[in-house]
Design a protein around this nucleic acid. Structure first.
Length: 949
DNA sequence: GACCCCACGTA
DNA sequence: GTACGTGGGGTCA
């Protein structure tokens, strides 16, 4: 029996960074807008260690002020690391607080890195007879490993790997752990900016070590090397020695290991609870409480266990580790982690009681239906053959109305039989008194519509609920389940594989797995609903949810099902013309350049223009170091160089052809002959819709050639025309009304040309003397205001110099003082509350509004101004859509609403109904929301979308 | 094939 | 300066 004392030394920043990047795609933001990913990631790892190992001695080590010695050696040391993310800077003080409350010793030494502190302490403690575990994912520590010193590498998804001497020797293919230093020195480390030997990577470093054993010995024998490698290494001898020094962890930091100081005491549970509550760490708090509540019980048990020399091996089934051979040598913290289950202890289908039943007989279906009809509220979810709702077939429907229980009705491949079975459930779907719960219900409604099965009754969509609770997050059900229910659902990829060639159809998944997967989804969604009902309430968005977003689901469903007709043959002809133009331009460009290259490659184009042709003395570079060749750059050069004008034209035509002219015909649904875009209701952070598959919200209109594409959008047949209804200047009207800036309000009330009116006031001249240029500049400022202007941005957009732009903005604010006050008030509100809101109380949280980084804060401030404007406009058109849809339904019009483009609605208008629907549309849009400024809607009609404008 | 970057279409 | 989605090139596995 070994009673050797154990010391755990935790490398804080390594775990903090790792935690932060693990959540990078779905940062954990609490209701105050604080990004808690780093704190959560770190605490999960720390609690995991404590829970598993019950260490009696433990300390957490931080860097402070970087390594003075290493920077002296090599100025660039760690210089090319990105600045520490804001969220991490904010996280560290919290982590200190929590550690203090947990009574965990913190080790920092100004001017030294945590590596060095841990190294020094490890060696000291080893001498005093301790077994030392360095808790870190960083491979650099392998050099410290000895008989009594181990690396304790936390795994994603819980569990850990222990690296002792044998593991290190095997991983690095060396004979002594100290050779890790030579290894790192040879291959370098881009994250730490250790240069390494040029041309030497992992493979070569291992080979060198096998042959020469050390950096010094390699450098003494470079004559044995061959070719390019010989030249490179010989030229870099000094660099090699320096790299090795940089990679060496120091063992003489002025710190002293004192067993008493490092003893792990009982935490101040009250204080920790308070901190966790403040951070809104519900699951972590549970985890923490369990860890320390079990403390005494565990200690008794551990008498038997203490015969283990090594920490207990994990028995929990952890998800497949991402740390394979390759990952071992990846830069720390940069790996994008797909498995976010850092917190061990998610519930899942295996450890949670549930009763999910497959329903596959007439009798059982009948019983289920009767049950369903007795409910006030039922959650359902469809399983289908694919993702395109209007083209897929139904495979099954899951239902749940009681937590942990649910049913899965499966359907055969035969579509007639499927129809018959589905018909049995018509009483349920048409029952208007039963609430239907789902996650992304629009999809399910569309699938059911394929079988002519409309759904009635109130809806509750958990995806949209969460979109209102926090629009900046993503709303996948899996993530929501993990965040709010501490539950990790069966992953779809586990069932049918990764998307792409080898993906299976749900049809071939064994029926038991189908049932478990499908009912789990309905079960989880049901549970999320309970959760979100109160969260909507506390976010003050219940009304917005019930009266705008949920009714809109049905409206969008109808619009998507409707689709729009396009003139395919016209587009095909257009493509031929474009191809001719493109070929002609291509020839000209090659002639000017004196060489042939891929004009569509910005990389190649940049080299031709700026290296070979040297069109500019100091070409601008993009952030990745390539030459910038964007439209803004080219337009400066256009007047002097024909090749530039040709390139601009080439780009324009290529874009039109690839994105629209050639792509749109492929999007025509073979069954309906129409294009059915998909509106995303839970994507845009401001509350706007977005459109994809295909995106019909960015169809060209500005250029002559672009307008050609619009002509392809046509009415359904000769009895119809397209009707387009546009809000005129809705965002400016909103900002005028919200700021109560009377000058601007009056201009709108009097029906003035707002940009000319602005120009007259700003330049202090009569309205009829405003020049085109003045109006244009005023227009740019008007728009700039909405986006949060800067003099820099304005001067970029106009011919004005920076100082002229600044002067214009200043006069603008003098002309409209209340507007400026309103903008400042929005920013203040955001600082105080952490969010801003629209006229319908739609919120956007701005976590960076108090950031100490001026650039980051500036962006948040512009959002504080823009989000309420853009979002209120979105609110208003959504209201109008709902009201118009209701009227159209009620009147049973043949005319249909087809598209929404942020401030415009497009209709297939039956010629006989034109005069009836025109005033309805105009009225409903202009009166959707009452403000102190009138809304104005312009209606156009035509045989295609261009003419309708 | 998956992913990022660049460029560019709209409001 | 705000908000999106798509297509092609380039790179890596």
């Amino acid at each position: 029996m070994s009673d050797q004392k154990r010391l755990f030394l935790v490398d804080a920043y390594a775990l903090i960074f790792r935690g932060y990047y693990a959540f990078i795609k779905n940062p954990r933001i609490n209701s105050k807008g604080l990004d808690t990913s780093a704190i959560m990631g770190f605490m999960n790892s720390l609690l995991d260690v404590i829970k598993r190992e019950r260490p009696d001695h433990l300390a957490v080590c931080f860097d402070k002020g970087g390594s003075v010695d290493r920077v002296e050696m090599f100025e660039a040391y760690k210089a090319n690391r990105d600045a520490t993310p804001e969220a991490i800077k904010l996280a560290v003080p919290y982590i200190y607080e929590i550690l203090k409350a947990m009574h965990i010793p913190i080790m920092v030494k100004e001017g030294f890195e945590a590596d060095d502190v841990i190294g020094t302490l490890s060696k000291q403690a080893e001498k005093e007879g301790y077994k030392v575990y360095m808790v870190t994912p960083d491979k650099d520590f392998a050099q410290l490993v000895s008989e009594n010193i181990f690396m304790y590498k936390p795994r994603f998804g819980g569990g850990y790997d222990i690296w002792g001497v044998p593991e290190v020797l095997e991983k690095f293919e060396i004979t002594d752990p100290l050779q890790v230093i030579d290894f790192l020195g040879m291959m370098g480390d881009s994250a730490d900016n250790i240069p390494g030997l040029p041309g030497v990577g992992e493979k070569t470093a291992k080979k060198f070590l096998a042959t020469y054993g050390s950096m010094e010995n390699l450098l003494a024998n470079t004559h044995e090397l061959k070719g390019k490698m010989k030249e490179k290494v010989e030229a870099a001898k000094e660099l090699g020695i320096l790299s090795k020094q940089l990679a060496t962890i120091m063992l003489d930091v002025p710190v002293t290991f004192d067993a008493d100081d490092f003893t792990l005491d009982q935490p101040d549970i009250e204080k920790v609870t308070e901190l966790f509550n403040e951070l809104e760490f519900r699951n972590l708090l549970t985890n923490f409480s369990k860890t320390f509540a079990d403390e005494n019980a565990e200690k008794v048990n551990s008498i038997e266990d203490s015969s283990d020399d090594e920490p207990k091996k994990s028995t929990k089934k952890a998800p497949p580790s991402t740390e394979g051979q390759f990952d071992l040598f990846a830069a720390p913290g940069t790996g994008s982690i797909t498995d976010e289950a850092i917190a061990s202890g998610f519930k899942n289908i295996e450890n949670t009681n549930h009763f999910y039943q497959h329903i596959n007989s007439p009798l059982s279906r009948k019983i289920l239906l009767q049950k369903l009809l007795q409910q006030k509220s039922v959650c359902f979810d469809t399983e289908t053959t694919g993702l395109k709702a209007l083209e897929v077939e139904l495979i099954g429907i899951s239902f749940s109305f009681e937590i942990g229980k649910g049913f899965y009705v499966s359907f055969p491949e035969d579509q007639d039989e499927t129809k018959t079975i589905l018909e049995e459930f018509r009483p349920f779907f048409e029952a208007s008194e039963i609430e239907k719960i789902g996650h992304n219900l629009k999809y399910d409604l569309k699938v059911l519509s394929n079988y002519n099965m409309p759904v009635k009754g109130n809806l509750f969509d958990t995806m949209i609920a969460h979109y209102l609770i926090n629009p900046d997050m993503r709303h996948n059900m899996d993530i929501l389940a993990e965040t709010y229910l501490n539950y990790q659902p069966v992953s779809i990829t586990e069932l049918i594989g990764k998307k792409g060639k080898n993906q299976l159809s749900m049809r071939v998944v064994p029926i038991n797995d189908q049932t478990e997967y499908a009912v789990e989804d309905a079960d989880i969604t049901l549970q999320l609903k309970e959760h979100f009902t109160s969260e909507l309430e506390s976010g003050n968005v219940t009304k917005l949810f019930n009266e705008v977003e949920l009714p809109l689901v049905s409206v969008l469903t109808a619009m998507e099902i409707e689709g729009i007709n396009i003139n395919t043959s016209y587009l095909n002809e257009l493509s031929v013309v474009l191809t001719d133009d493109i070929n002609r331009l291509e020839k000209n460009i090659y002639e000017h350049a004196g060489e042939e290259f891929n004009i569509a490659s910005p990389k190649q184009l940049g080299i031709v223009l700026f290296e070979n042709m040297k069109l500019v003395d100091k070409p601008k570079k993009t952030k990745t170091g390539q030459y910038a060749t964007g439209e803004d750059i080219l337009s400066y050069l256009a007047k002097d160089h024909e090749i530039i004008r040709n390139i601009q034209e080439y780009r324009q035509y290529k874009k039109l052809q690839s994105t629209y002219v050639d792509a749109l015909p492929n999007e025509v649904n073979p069954k309906t002959g129409r294009i059915h875009t998909e509106y995303m209701q839970a994507v845009a952070a401001t509350g706007r819709l977005s459109s994809n598959n295909p995106n019909l919200q960015n169809i060209p209109i500005r250029t002559e050639r672009g307008k050609g594409v619009r002509k392809a959008f046509i009415p359904r047949d000769e009895n119809y025309v397209l009707l387009a209804a546009d809000y005129s200047q809705i965002e400016l009207r909103i900002i005028a009304a919200l700021s109560e800036e009377e000058t601007m309000m009056n201009a709108f009330k009097n029906g003035e040309d707002i940009h000319a009116s602005t120009a007259a006031k700003v330049f202090n001249i009569p309205l009829d003397e405003v020049t085109r240029e003045q109006r244009s500049n005023a227009k740019t400022v008007n728009f700039g205001i909405i986006y949060g202007v800067s003099a820099f941005g304005l001067s970029n957009q106009t011919d004005l110099s920076r100082s002229e732009a600044k002067e214009l903005i200043d006069t603008y604010y003098e002309t409209y003082p209340k507007l400026k006050a309103y903008m400042a008030a929005q920013v203040d509100f955001a600082r105080d509350h952490g969010y801003v809101e629209t006229v319908l109380n739609r919120r956007r949280y701005l976590k960076d509004i108090n950031s100490r980084n001026a650039v980051v804060r500036g962006a948040a401030e512009r959002n504080a101004v823009n989000a309420p404007i853009q979002g209120s406009a979105a609110d208003i058109i959504k209201l109008a859509m709902i009201n118009i849809y209701k009227r159209f339904e009620k009147e049973n019009f043949k005319s249909k609403m087809l598209l929404q483009v942020h401030d415009e609605l497009v209709f297939d208008a039956h010629k006989d109904e034109l005069e009836i629907i025109k005033p309805i549309i105009k009225f409903e849009m202009e009166n959707a929301f009452k403000m102190s400024v009138p809304l104005d809607v312009e209606i156009g009609i035509g045989d295609n979308w261009l003419e309708a404008h």
